[in-house]
Design a protein around this nucleic acid. Sequence first.
DNA 1: ACCGAAACTTATGTATGCATTAATAAATGC
DNA 2: GCATTTATTAATGCATACATAAGTTTCGGT
Lengths: 223, 223
Amino acid sequence: MGQRVRPTRVEDAYARLKDEIRTNRLPPGLQVPEPEIAMRLGMSRTPVREALIRLEAEGLIALAPRRGVRVLPIKADDMREIYEILTSLEPDAAASLAGSKPSSDDLAPLEQATSAMELALADGNLDAWVEADDRFHRTLLELQGNRRLQNFVTALYDQAHRARIVTMQLRETPHKSTKEHRAILRNLQLGNVEETRRIFREHRQRAAQELLGILDKYKFGQL
Amino acid sequence: MGQRVRPTRVEDAYARLKDEIRTNRLPPGLQVPEPEIAMRLGMSRTPVREALIRLEAEGLIALAPRRGVRVLPIKADDMREIYEILTSLEPDAAASLAGSKPSSDDLAPLEQATSAMELALADGNLDAWVEADDRFHRTLLELQGNRRLQNFVTALYDQAHRARIVTMQLRETPHKSTKEHRAILRNLQLGNVEETRRIFREHRQRAAQELLGILDKYKFGQL
DNA sequence: ACCGAAACTTATGTATGCATTAATAAATGC
DNA sequence: GCATTTATTAATGCATACATAAGTTTCGGT
């Protein structure tokens, strides 16, 4: 089955850099020359470059000629853009999934993710909560089936991830979000198209407002 | 102003290849090894490779290890995905633009594109019509302002472009589409948010049905 | 003729080299 | 001491080289 091919250096570089960026280990705004990255990853510039091009296409870095790779800062405006798109896409995706009358088995991974969110919330484990939340959204897209949609929205999640980490500690515990997830799941099970769309839309709008509120309040204007 | 920098070979390769793909001069399904492309473009493999990575990220080609670059075939399912997303995104984008109460000056380029469509239709010039239609949609996104949205939707247009060219000759003259554009423009001018969204959604849904109908009918299953 | 194995060819992944040119540091004039 | 100009350093864009491994052909055995 899985064409088990030896992972290439490009893939390795890509995965490692992406992870380091997502988790803010490579902090927003940082500028590093290619050779330094190559050295750090223990490979030549060639595969690093190819990985960087991919990361640029995904909106995680900017390749600034002569001044190296710049890890993109987290700007409120960017988050506005991202959430505007998510508010457009996700509710429709969820509605379309609801319309396809998914079985309980199909929805099982969503059920799991939702339970994990509730559990994490009860435990006060914010990291676990974020992970489960992320998983819920990604799984939903997988189930919906539109690959392009999935890839794009996933890229947006990745872009927003860093901001979410930073703001997570500054916001109130996400009771409401968790309940909304449960409500979305319930409506998916019932195949309730319009209600699913409505709740999801609300969910996203609220999330956006909350995130942006914090970014503005704490002046994360450019970091 | 425009930091007129000498265009790099990567950019050149990217632009040329993209154009050749968009216009079906590099036909869907074609497989070419990298060295051949490099030779044809008169440069080494390095810049070609970087361009290819970008094109892959945009969903125009697939890099199949050992068997070269494959120009992606035009599949009905892909078009379904693309139009599903466009149906989600564009109406909201248009609505958002309407809500921003754009001035007549702002909308001038849309007015031009619409007129060009009407003119092209009267002249029976389908190529010009497609060009103007494309311009309308791209301009609308520019005016709306969300860069990520713009880039993504633009990539989708590019992916769909080839199928549109092929099917253009097989469909009836696009009177209805042209009128819808005029109607959208009118509602944008009036700042009528909901009506703009509604018409645009209808516009996209109809366009999708038409395209898919032709693809199915003429069995463009995989080409 | 047909199947399989060995030899050969070619594409890819990656490293390395190098000219160009931007960024930075040093040096000069005011 | 400050603003320029010149020298130095270093990053990038690209070409080239090469080992590896996938395809392809040739060849031999049946």
